[in-house]
């Protein structure tokens, strides 16, 4: 909501608990590949605060996607603690995690974010249906959400009739529709040309400023990083840098 409060706090430091959307403590994740264990995260300590507009960068294989997946409750950590919006994810069943994702997380993936047989508006309404929102409210909110990302008039298009940038905008609109605690975006601009990517990052920055939505974006894209107000570096499964920037 108000950027100044955030800038007053030090990242990862002792911010008040209720201001922390995500808390990771000594988070580890090992993948098993045949006989060998591949360490993807080796003790991550991280706090994301309400209203953050943060990027997560690092070399390929450093664990960005893995960390986003852990926070999003798509997979269980091997060790350590992870708390999202006050909930300890290790305590949740798969079904509870699905419910948690539905209510609290917005995802934007690199590509193929949308259900191909549904129109732009239906893709957004789908989330609301799962949440049990009534039909009139669904329609209105989906329209408003599409308008919010500049896609007025494209409500009835199927994804195949939208450009890559438009598809990502629909994905962003959908990620925001459940008023999530945090939006996790994994390389949201990787499949877009420079100009479209710039438009998308502007949009997300704008939504962050207007609605105070918390964003955490895994990215290699220098222009995305340039727009972020907090930048986290991951190297070999560990946090190697965490700094606030001014816009």
């Amino acid at each position: 909501m108000c950027p100044d409060t955030k800038e007053a706090t030090t990242p990862g430091a002792d911010a008040p608990e209720n201001d922390s959307i995500v808390v990771c403590r000594n988070l580890e994740k090992h993948y098993r590949q045949g006989a060998i264990q591949v360490p993807a995260l080796r003790g991550v300590d991280l706090e994301i605060h309400r209203g953050d507009f943060a990027t997560l960068a690092g070399p390929s294989g450093s664990g960005k996607t893995t960390l986003l997946n852990m926070i999003g409750g798509l997979d269980y950590p091997s060790a350590g603690e992870i708390i999202v919006d006050g909930q300890d994810l290790r305590a949740l069943t798969k079904s509870d995690l699905a419910e948690m994702r539905l209510r609290k997380i917005g995802f934007v993936f690199q590509a193929y974010n949308l259900i191909p047989v549904l129109t732009a508006a239906e893709n957004i309404e789908f989330i609301l249906r799962l949440q049990g929102v009534g039909s009139r409210e669904r329609h209105e909110r989906a329209r408003a959400a599409l308008a919010d990302v500049g896609l007025e008039g494209l409500e009835d298009r199927r994804p195949s009739h939208l450009s890559g940038g438009q598809q990502q905008r629909v994905a962003v609109a959908r990620a925001l529709i459940n008023r999530p605690a945090i939006v996790l975006a994994d390389e949201p601009t990787a499949n877009l040309d420079t100009q479209t990517a710039g438009g998308l990052i502007d949009l997300m920055a704008d939504l962050n400023a207007r609605h105070g939505t918390t964003f955490l974006m895994g990215t290699h894209d220098a222009r995305v990083i340039a727009r972020s107000r907090r930048h986290i570096e991951l190297t070999d499964g560990r946090i190697s840098g965490d700094e606030l920037r001014n816009t």
Partner: peptide, 16 residues
């Protein structure tokens, strides 16, 4: 496969 993964990521339960 990708689509079913996506639906689950969006909060659809395996039962659904």
């Amino acid at each position: 496969i990708h689509e079913f993964g996506l639906m689950q990521a969006l909060g659809m339960r395996p039962r659904m």
